[in-house]
Structures are given as structure tokens and as C-alpha cells.
Amino acid sequence: MLRLFARLLARWPVEKALTAACVLGLVTLGIMAAGVVLGTPLWVIGSMSAAQGTGVLAGLLFALSVAADAGARSTHRP
């Protein structure tokens, strides 16, 4: 399991994942802001459910990217 995770991290596209995390993060923030500003049922419920799902996904992409970057640095250390 750990080997599989290490292999996944070795091939992890850090830059692309960070870009995706930023875009997902902006979508999340947009939905949450709409829930507060508009206050209609769908937006409020979306801000408390869907937005938190995309937010967690963005955070996971960021965490994996940091782990992959740290792994790459330790592998290439002279």
C-alpha cells in the first residue's frame, strides 16, 4: 500500500495539481460567498455541502502536491 502511494507520488504532476487545486478552491469560495450573499435555499445548502466537498478535494490536491514535491527533493538530494 505504501509502495503504491510512493509510486503515485513519484508520478504526481505537482504543477497541474496545484493549478487544479487553485481553480477548485476558487469555485469553492465562489459557492460559499453566493450562499452568504444570495441566501436562497439552493445556494445556502450548496455552500454547506457541495462547496465543502470541493474544498476538501482542493485541500487534498494541495497536500498530495506538497508531499510529492518533498519526496522528489529528498530523492534528488546529493
Partner: peptide, 24 residues
């Protein structure tokens, strides 16, 4: 990125949920 993808969104999610629960 840690601030932009984790710390501030977490604070915003907590505040949004509290606001949403009150709104409902």
C-alpha cells in the same frame, strides 16, 4: 497556498456554515 487552500477556506467554511444554519 496553505493559507489560500486550507487556513482561510476552513475559516470561511466554518463561518459560512454558521451563517447558513442561522439563515435556515
Amino acid at each position: 497556498l496553505l493559507l489560500g487552500l486550507a487556513v482561510f477556506p476552513f475559516l470561511s467554511a466554518v463561518a459560512t456554515t454558521a451563517h447558513g444554519m442561522h439563515r435556515t
